[in-house]
Write a protein that binds this DNA or RNA. Structure first.
Length: 591
RNA sequence: GCGCUCGUAGCUCAAUGGAUAGAGUACUGGCCUCCGAAGCCAGGGGUUGUGGGUUCGAUCCCCGCCGAGCGCGCCA
């Protein structure tokens, strides 16, 4: 079973132990049960070290077909297993697991692989599949809040992860620049502007309340003086008779928008575009500051201007999926599993948000993405059936669309849940959060939960105990390694050729196993759209390093041992860098 | 009421259908003459909400119930 000398293959950076072991099992399988020769061979990394480096449940899978006790099947398989230079020991354990223990050389070979690949260690083979990740896509009607921050952190990390896993990734932000919300922001700004000229209108409770609206009004005043001023009486006169002094209803808000359009005429477009440009720039700056970048900023309005929306609806109409009722056009989404049919064009002729979203998704598909991933707030979950239904009705393959739902973030301050409302402007912004806890902690903290888990964010805890934040634990491991290497002051490049035989301790082998796991983890996390797995991995990796560091000295006198350990430390630093950079977290040399 | 997402240690959260369900935090006790103590080591802590089912094997898949959040508009 055990070969005395390791062939050159094991030293190669491309040697894949898992694949090698699967090959051995395949050979045994064909010998033991030829009729089952094509059964899937699964090799997992056991949680417990005593179960070896790899375990296979193959015997348990076969037991039923072979009508034999799993342990007996396992023992027969082991007898037929070819000898291998990489395998030190094979055990049958538990219900019928086949456990492989690797030779020290096979375990430590990963160090060489990491140092050879550098920042590409863990990168998956190019898959020639084009993916689009659309995320954040918040209405540009005010500063991003902590909920957007979670979507931003998740989407950005997911996109980086997918790209690293081997996909071609486009990061996109859908700008809702065509809807009623933008009109509300414009009229909100205009009303604040009128206040500056002592033309006070009662400011509606359902208009945008945030201070940034007053700031924009002030800017407009500075730049254009009283150009947009109209007497309050004139504005009120424009309102529908029953809305003159009434309550803050949606109808009154719409009335105010119409009044703005009537009184300002062509200047309304200026007001509308000004607030859009301001808020979008603000949003973009926040995201850049947060380390989140987009390849495409896609305008909803462009879908109307190019006739995309009208064409999409017309196509559905032509294929018989649209009907008229109460003066509106309805899409028969119930035929595709939705709860009820949905309006795509209102009785006043305006298209709904849903209509432009159909057009948008068809446009995404037309751009040739193999997979389109939408990152949505969890409150939009009811929206999935209608979008997928519309795609199916349009002849597109709805399976090409995946939706990742990001659950809500609740902020806690002084043990109290912070009430947040976008419309009232009473919310903690992403900018404030980053200022409090820092970008790195913020990005990492968001990644410490699966996206479909609601997140309770305790501001006091994050602030007062920021030193205990796991991100520092990981970064500290990186800084420590940098510090040791600096003291050593040798040729790091030469460590790639170090003899790894002196790496004998259990902790060193555990650390090697963790490093070897990284490429596998990348693929799994990418498959599951779960960048959080990367954060947990980095915590574990840092933990393995800290444990080893405390148990063994790196800068020992014996040259061979010193260089082997430094090579392992260098490889660890490399994987920490690769992982942290995917999450948008910095890798400080000192802290 | 219907639908979606969830329910795991005191708290915050993990766990491709696998073995004794794991981390952090909090608590208790140890470790700096030594490469960075933002670190390490040890300890107690659990009927995985609940009752069934599928499976050699279920925290994971299916059904019921209980509980939480969200959604159910010719808003986005």
């Amino acid at each position: 079973m055990v070969s005395s000398s390791a062939p050159a293959g094991i030293a190669s950076a491309s040697f894949d132990v898992r694949q090698h072991l699967a090959g051995l099992l395949r050979t045994a399988l064909v010998s033991v049960a030829p009729e089952q020769g094509h059964a899937e061979i699964i090799l997992e990394r056991p949680k417990q070290a005593s179960h070896g480096d790899f375990a296979s449940n193959l015997a348990m899978q076969l037991a039923r077909e072979l009508k034999t006790n799993p342990r007996q099947v396992a023992e027969r398989l082991v007898r037929e297993l070819p000898a291998s230079f990489a395998v030190a020991k094979v055990d049958v354990a538990g219900a019928g697991f086949i456990n492989f223990t690797l030779t020290p050389a096979a375990r430590t070979a990963v160090v060489r692989a990491v140092l050879a690949a550098g920042h590409n260690f863990g990168r998956g083979p190019a898959k020639r599949l084009r993916l689009q990740v659309e995320f954040v896509s918040a209405n540009p009607t005010g500063p991003l809040h902590v909920g957007h921050g979670r979507g931003a952190a998740y989407g950005a990390s997911l996109a980086s992860l997918l790209a690293f896993a081997g996909f071609e990734v486009t990061r996109e932000y859908y700008v809702n620049d065509a809807g009623r919300q933008m009109d509300i922001l414009a009229v909100s700004t205009w009303l604040r502007y009128l206040e500056l000229f002592d033309e006070p209108m009662p400011f509606p409770a359902n208009a945008y309340q945030g201070g940034y609206v007053r700031e924009m009004a002030e800017q407009v005043k500075q730049a254009h003086g009283d150009r947009y001023v109209h007497p309050a009486e004139a504005v009120i006169a424009c309102l529908p008779p029953d809305q003159g002094s009434g309550e803050d209803t949606e109808a009154r808000l719409d009335g105010l928008i119409l009044a703005g359009k009537d009184l300002l005429g062509e200047d309304w477009a200026y007001m509308h575009d000004h607030v859009l440009t301001e808020q979008l720039a603000d949003c973009r700056a926040d995201l850049e500051q947060f380390g989140v970048h987009f390849d495409v900023w896609f305008s909803e309005r462009s879908l109307f201007e190019t006739g995309m929306v009208a064409r999409a609806v017309a196509a559905l109409e032509k294929s018989g999926h649209i009907y008229l009722q109460d003066g509106a056009k309805w899409f028969s989404s119930t035929a595709f599993g939705d709860e009820k049919d949905r309006v795509v064009q209102r009785d006043n002729g305006l298209y709904t948000y849903f209509a432009s979203d159909i057009a948008y998704h068809l446009n995404k598909f037309e751009r040739g993405f193999d997979k389109v991933i939408d990152v949505w707030g969890a409150d939009h979950h009811g929206y999935i059936p209608r979008v997928k239904g519309a795609l199916s009705a349009s002849g597109a393959d709805a399976e090409r669309l995946d939706v990742a739902l990001v659950q809500f973030v609740s902020l806690f301050r002084n043990g109290q849940k912070v009430a947040m409302s976008t419309r009232s402007g009473d919310y903690v912004t992403l900018r404030q959060l980053c200022a409090e806890v820092g970008n790195d902690a913020c990005r990492f903290f968001y990644m410490l939960r699966k996206c479909d888990q609601a997140l309770d964010f305790d501001l006091d805890l994050a602030k007062s105990q920021s030193n205990d934040n796991p991100v520092y634990y990981v970064q500290y491991a990186h800084a420590r390694i940098c510090s040791v290497l600096a003291q050593w002051d040798g040729d790091e490049a030469a460590l790639a050729r170090a003899d790894l035989a002196p790496l004998l301790h259990e902790r060193e082998h555990a650390l090697c196993a963790r490093l070897a796991e990284f490429p596998e983890l990348i693929q799994l996390a990418a498959r599951d759209y779960g960048p959080h797995a990367l954060a947990f991995y980095l915590k574990d990796l840092a933990g393995d390093f800290h444990g080893w560091y405390n148990a063994e000295r790196l800068l020992v006198d014996a040259q061979a041992t010193r260089e082997a350990r430094l090579a392992l430390a260098l490889a660890t630093r490399q994987v920490l860098q690769n992982g942290l950079s995917l999450l948008g977290v910095s890798q400080p040399v000192s802290m």
